[in-house]
Amino acid sequence: SLEELLKLARHALRHGEEIHVLDRVITDEHEIKRLIEELERLI
Rank of each mutant, 00 (worst) to 15 (best):
E4K: 12
V25M: 07
R24W: 09
G16W: 04
H15M: 11
D23V: 03
E29P: 15
R10Y: 14
G16N: 10
H11F: 05
D28K: 10
A9T: 03
H30T: 13
E17C: 09
I43P: 01
L13K: 03
G16M: 06
K7C: 05
L22C: 06
E38I: 13
L35T: 02
E29D: 07
R41A: 10
R41L: 08
I19C: 02
R41Q: 09
L8Q: 10
V25D: 05
E29Q: 14
H20K: 15
R34P: 01
T27N: 11
H11C: 08
I32R: 01
E3T: 09
S1F: 14
K7P: 00
E31V: 08
E40T: 07
E38T: 15
L6T: 01
E38P: 00
V21P: 01
L35H: 03
H15E: 08
R14W: 12
D23N: 09
L8P: 00
I43S: 02
R10E: 09
I32T: 02
R34I: 12
H30I: 12
R10L: 14
I19K: 01
H20L: 10
E17S: 13
E40K: 06
H11V: 05
A9S: 03
L22W: 12
R14L: 14
L22P: 05
L6R: 02
K33L: 14
I26H: 04
A12C: 04
E40Y: 07
D23K: 02
L39S: 00
E17Y: 14
E29V: 15
R41H: 08
A9L: 14
D23F: 03
R41F: 09
E29C: 03
R14A: 15
L13E: 03
G16Q: 08
H30W: 15
I36M: 03
K33R: 15
R24E: 05
I26G: 02
L13Q: 05
E31F: 06
L42K: 10
L39C: 03
L6A: 02
L5N: 01
L13V: 05
H20S: 09
E40M: 08
E18T: 15
K33E: 10
L6N: 00
H30A: 14
R41G: 06
D28G: 15
E18A: 15
H11E: 11
R34K: 14
L35V: 06
V21H: 08
E38K: 12
E37K: 12
I43W: 05
L42F: 07
L39H: 00
I19L: 15
I32Q: 03
E31K: 06
L22I: 08
E4T: 10
H30L: 12
D28E: 12
L6E: 00
I43G: 02
S1L: 11
H20Q: 12
E40D: 05
R10T: 05
V25T: 09
E4R: 11
E18H: 13
R34Y: 09
E17G: 15
R10A: 04
D28Y: 06
L42T: 06
L8K: 13
L6Y: 02
H15W: 11
E3S: 07
G16Y: 04
I36W: 01
V21T: 07
E38M: 14
L39M: 03
L13A: 05
I32E: 00
H20V: 15
A12I: 02
I36T: 02
D28T: 12
L6V: 05
K33T: 09
T27C: 04
L42M: 12
L39Q: 00
A9Q: 01
R14C: 05
L35F: 13
E40H: 05
L13M: 06
A12L: 04
L13I: 08
L8Y: 08
E40C: 04
L35R: 03
E17N: 11
R41M: 09
V21K: 02
V21F: 14
L42E: 06
I26A: 04
H11P: 00
D23Y: 02
R10N: 08
L39Y: 03
S1V: 13
T27K: 14
E40S: 05
H20G: 05
L22S: 11
H30C: 07
L6P: 00
E17R: 11
K33Q: 11
E37S: 12
V21A: 08
A12T: 01
I32P: 00
L39G: 00
L35G: 00
V25A: 06
E29G: 10
R41I: 08
E40W: 07
R41V: 07
I43V: 07
G16V: 03
E31S: 08
A9F: 10
L2D: 02
E18L: 07
E37D: 12
S1R: 12
E18D: 09
H30G: 14
I32Y: 02
H11D: 10
E31H: 06
L2M: 08
L2G: 01
E17W: 10
T27G: 08
T27M: 07
L42C: 04
I36V: 07
E29A: 15
E29I: 14
I36N: 00
L13P: 00
H20P: 04
E17A: 11
G16R: 10
I36Q: 00
E4L: 12
V21L: 15
V21N: 03
L8N: 08
I19R: 01
H15S: 11
H15T: 13
I43R: 03
K7I: 10
A9R: 02
D28L: 11
R14E: 15
L6D: 00
I19Q: 01
L42Y: 07
E3Y: 11
L13F: 05
L5A: 04
L6F: 02
H11I: 07
L5W: 09
R34A: 15
L2S: 03
V21Y: 14
T27D: 07
R14Y: 14
R14P: 01
V25S: 06
R14K: 15
R41E: 06
R24K: 11
L42W: 07
R10P: 00
E3D: 08
I43A: 03
D23L: 04
S1T: 12
R14M: 14
E29Y: 13
G16D: 04
L6I: 06
L42R: 10
I32W: 02
L2W: 12
K33N: 07
E37C: 03
I19P: 01
I26F: 15
I43K: 02
H20Y: 09
I36Y: 01
L2F: 08
R34D: 10
L8G: 04
L35K: 01
R24F: 08
E18C: 09
L8V: 06
H15F: 12
I43L: 12
I19T: 02
L22F: 14
E38A: 12
T27Y: 08
E17I: 15
L5Y: 05
H30V: 12
T27F: 09
H30Q: 14
R34L: 14
E40G: 03
K33Y: 11
R24Q: 08
L13Y: 06
R10W: 13
E37V: 13
E37N: 11
L2R: 04
S1G: 11
E37M: 15
E37P: 01
E18M: 10
A12G: 05
L8W: 07
D23T: 04
I26S: 02
R14H: 13
D28W: 05
R41D: 06
E18S: 14
K33W: 11
A9D: 00
I19V: 13
S1I: 11
I26Q: 01
L39V: 06
R14Q: 15
E3F: 10
I36A: 02
L22T: 07
T27L: 06
I32A: 02
H20T: 13
L2P: 05
E18R: 08
E31D: 11
S1K: 15
K7Q: 11
I26T: 03
G16K: 13
L6W: 03
E4F: 11
R34S: 12
A12V: 03
V25N: 05
A12R: 03
E3N: 08
R24N: 06
H15P: 01
E18F: 09
L13H: 04
S1E: 13
H20E: 07
L6H: 01
G16L: 06
R41K: 12
V21I: 15
V25C: 04
K7M: 11
L2V: 07
L6M: 04
E38D: 11
I36E: 00
H30P: 07
E17L: 15
R41N: 08
E38Q: 15
H11T: 07
T27I: 10
K33I: 14
E40A: 05
L39P: 00
L42A: 09
E31P: 02
D23C: 04
E40V: 09
L13N: 02
E18K: 12
E38R: 12
E3A: 09
R24P: 01
H15L: 08
L2A: 06
E37Y: 15
R10I: 14
A9G: 01
V25W: 10
L42N: 04
K33C: 05
R24I: 08
L2E: 03
E18I: 11
S1H: 13
E37I: 14
L5P: 00
E29N: 09
L6G: 00
E3M: 11
E31I: 07
I43C: 03
L8E: 07
L35Q: 01
E3Q: 10
A12M: 03
R24S: 06
I26R: 02
I36L: 03
R34H: 11
E29R: 15
G16E: 03
I19D: 01
